[in-house]
Simulated scan of single mutants.
Amino acid sequence: MRALVPNAVTALALCSGLTGVRYAIAEDWERAITFVIIAAVLDGMDGRIARMLRGQSRFGAELDSLSDVIAFGVSPAIILYLWALQEVPRYGWIFALAHAVCAALRLARFNAAIDVEDQPHKSAGFLTGVPAPAGAGLAFLPIYLWLWTESDVFRQFWVVAPWAALVAILMISNVATFSWTSLRLRSHVRLWALGVIAVVGGALFSAPWPTLSLAAMLYAALIPASVYAYGKVKRSRRAAAAAAPATEA
């Protein structure tokens, strides 16, 4: 029973992501995006529920990856294709495939490295590449902007296709990205953090598309900062490793 609850949440995330495709077929873009976002929220909950209930299992880990491929790889690819990439069907489908394939490759790499002890990014509190849920959120940035501004320029093939390709590359890249689960807030900052979370939550309900647009742009802007921060960690580790033999001698 302890393993059933988190696995059920994972299955709901899969269903939510696929439901986004259903609404995309009906050209209800707001609901299509909303259901993928719900899938991302559920995906963030299942692992924590499993740890809280001590219901972690290899089956759950495999189911989570399969759910992520569908909810954050296949579903966003189809939504983007139906929304804008089908404007140039032959080439648009290639960019849609690129997103789905890169999401699958990223998750396969993650599964293959689960039992690997030497993971420099993970040990330093970073992720390798953009995670699949964040990749789906970034890929939807042109849709957020279109829903916000109602400007058709964000729906043009020459805007959506290069952006989709960039996000796909970031998912399978070795770029170090921040992991919010590794953040440790000091006690005097926690109250401010709660206030910010409350304001952002209110903004999501009252003005979802401007809020999601700004959130996606902020995340993209933080990627160079995360690369710089990991570079500092690497240099400090290198210096400590160089100093260790001298100390022993």
Rank of each mutant, 00 (worst) to 15 (best):
Glu62Arg: 12
Leu63Phe: 14
Leu66Phe: 15
Leu66Asn: 13
Val69Arg: 04
Val69Phe: 13
Ile70Pro: 02
Gly73Trp: 00
Val74Ala: 07
Ser75Tyr: 00
Ser75Ile: 00
Ala77Gln: 00
Leu80Lys: 03
Leu80Ile: 09
Tyr81Cys: 07
Leu82Pro: 08
Leu82Lys: 12
Trp83Cys: 09
Trp83Met: 10
Leu85Cys: 06
Leu85Ala: 02
Glu87Gln: 15
Val88Trp: 12
Pro89Asp: 07
Pro89Tyr: 07
Tyr91Trp: 15
Gly92Ala: 08
Trp93Pro: 01
Trp93Arg: 03
Ile94Leu: 15
Ile94Asn: 02
Phe95Glu: 00
Phe95Asp: 00
Phe95Leu: 06
Phe95Gln: 01
Ala96Pro: 03
Ala96Glu: 02
Leu97Cys: 14
Ala98Gly: 09
Ala100Cys: 10
Cys102Gln: 02
Leu105Phe: 10
Leu105Pro: 03
Arg106Gln: 06
Leu107Pro: 00
Leu107Ala: 07
Ala108Pro: 03
Arg109Leu: 07
Arg109Met: 05
Phe110Glu: 07
Asn111Cys: 03
Ala113Trp: 07
Ala113Met: 14
Asp115Trp: 07
Val116Leu: 13
Val116Ala: 14
Pro120Asp: 08
Pro120Thr: 13
His121Gly: 10
Lys122Tyr: 13
Lys122Arg: 14
Lys122Gln: 13
Ser123Lys: 15
Phe126Thr: 05
Thr128Tyr: 01
Thr128Cys: 11
Thr128Met: 11
Gly129Thr: 09
Gly129Glu: 06
Val130Ala: 04
Val130Ile: 12
Pro131Phe: 07
Pro131Lys: 07
Ala132Met: 06
Ala132His: 05
Pro133Glu: 04
Ala134Lys: 10
Gly135Thr: 12
Gly135Trp: 03
Ala136Met: 06
Leu138Gly: 01
Phe140Lys: 04
Phe140His: 03
Pro142Asp: 01
Ile143Phe: 05
Tyr144Cys: 04
Leu145His: 00
Leu145Thr: 00
Leu147Val: 00
Trp148Lys: 02
Trp148Arg: 02
Thr149Met: 10
Ser151Glu: 14
Val153Gln: 14
Val153Trp: 15
Val153Met: 14
Phe154Asn: 02
Gln156Thr: 12
Phe157Arg: 03
Trp158Ala: 10
Val159Thr: 11
Val159Arg: 08
Ala161Met: 08
Ala161Lys: 02
Ala165Pro: 09
Leu166Arg: 02
Leu166Ala: 14
Ala168Met: 05
Leu170Arg: 05
Leu170Gly: 05
Met171Cys: 04
Ile172Trp: 02
Ala176Tyr: 06
Thr177Glu: 06
Thr177Gln: 08
Phe178Met: 05
Ser179Phe: 11
Trp180Tyr: 12
Ser182Gly: 02
Arg184Ser: 12
Arg184Asn: 10
Leu185Thr: 11
Arg186Gln: 12
Arg186Ala: 11
